[in-house]
Computed example of a mutant assay.
Amino acid sequence: MPMASSSFNSYYQNPSTPSASGPTNQNAINSVFDQFRQPSDPLDEFSIDATMAYFDALGLQLDDVTLVPLSKVLGSESMGEISRKGFTDGWMQLGADSLPKMQEKLQELRQSLDTNEEYFKEVYKWAFGWAKPAGSKALPLDSATEWWRLLLQSRFGDNGHLERWLEFLNEKWKKSIPKDTWNMFYEFILSAKADPTLTGYDENGSYPSIIDAYVDYYRNLEQ
């Protein structure tokens, strides 16, 4: 897998930075969009079927975490929905105007997600609003469980807290997940990577009460 360029990482830290990949043909990007738009789709929108066909052509499976940052790049406001403007703007910024070039950029995107901590955190936080049902302020617990596993398993699964957290939520919490809990859980599991026994956890810190409750749950299990 090729290493992400510094200009690529710079773009994701500062989305206003133009792509350094060279001239890109917007008409060619529009042609790719039209190639996958279904006959029943609006002129300037992908249906879910069109999005899935496009992802499949890129070789992107639904259990590949890269679909999250790609959806962010393409301006998707909710899962499976992509507008022509978001599609063309995103690929113009990345400098890709054909499927092979888009596949190359997807590899760079994967690498940036793996190696750029600030970018990963940005994508993680963005995913909450993208994944939650339209009009809702919270993410259903079953959906949150799936997205936490997809986003965090490879990064934090080895310390045991991700699966225990999900076990705790499904046994004790049994409610939807608000944005604050989603965001702060990332800060928590990042700190737990350095302190897996949670000996330094401060119950009087800034974490929401649900994470305090999880720490009590964990400590009781470990006794």
Rank of each mutant, 00 (worst) to 15 (best):
E117L: 11
A131G: 03
E122Y: 09
F128H: 00
L109P: 10
K125T: 03
E108G: 11
S136Y: 11
N116H: 09
E118A: 14
G129E: 07
K121M: 05
Q107W: 07
V123C: 05
K137G: 14
S136N: 13
L106G: 06
N116M: 09
E118C: 10
A127G: 01
R110S: 15
L113Y: 13
R110K: 15
D114V: 01
L109G: 03
L109E: 05
W130T: 00
G129T: 00
W126I: 01
E108A: 13
T115C: 07
F128T: 00
G129Y: 02
N116W: 10
F120D: 03
R110P: 01
T115H: 13
W126E: 03
K121Y: 07
A134K: 13
N116P: 01
A127K: 05
K132V: 01
E117W: 11
G129H: 09
A131C: 14
A127H: 02
F120Y: 12
R110E: 02
L106F: 07
Q111W: 15
V123H: 07
K132G: 10
Q111K: 14
E118I: 09
V123K: 01
S136C: 12
G135S: 09
E118N: 10
K125W: 08
W126Y: 03
E117N: 13
P133M: 05
N116G: 12
A127I: 00
W126K: 08
K121H: 03
W126A: 07
G129S: 08
G135L: 04
S112P: 08
G135E: 04
G135P: 08
Y124E: 00
K137H: 10
E108V: 02
Y124A: 04
A127Y: 00
A134W: 03
L109D: 00
E117Y: 08
G135T: 08
T115S: 15
S136E: 12
L106P: 02
Y124Q: 01
W130F: 14
Y124N: 05
E117F: 11
G129K: 12
E108D: 12
W126R: 05
N116L: 14
F120R: 11
K121L: 02
L109R: 06
L113P: 05
Y119K: 08
R110I: 03
Q111D: 15
S136F: 12
W126H: 11
W130N: 09
E117K: 15
R110H: 14
E122I: 11
L106Y: 05
K132Y: 06
Y124H: 10
K132D: 10
W126D: 03
E118S: 13
A131Y: 08
K121S: 10
P133W: 06
K137P: 00
G135C: 02
F120P: 07
Y124S: 04
S136R: 14
K137V: 02
D114N: 15
D114K: 15
K125A: 04
D114Y: 13
Q111V: 09
L109W: 05
K121D: 04
L106D: 08
Q107N: 08
S112T: 15
V123N: 07
A127P: 00
Y124T: 04
Q111C: 10
G129I: 00
V123T: 14
E122M: 12
E108Y: 14
E122S: 14
N116Q: 13
L113W: 12
E117S: 13
G135K: 06
S112N: 11
Y124M: 03
L109H: 01
A127C: 11
Y119L: 12
N116T: 12
F128R: 04
W130H: 09
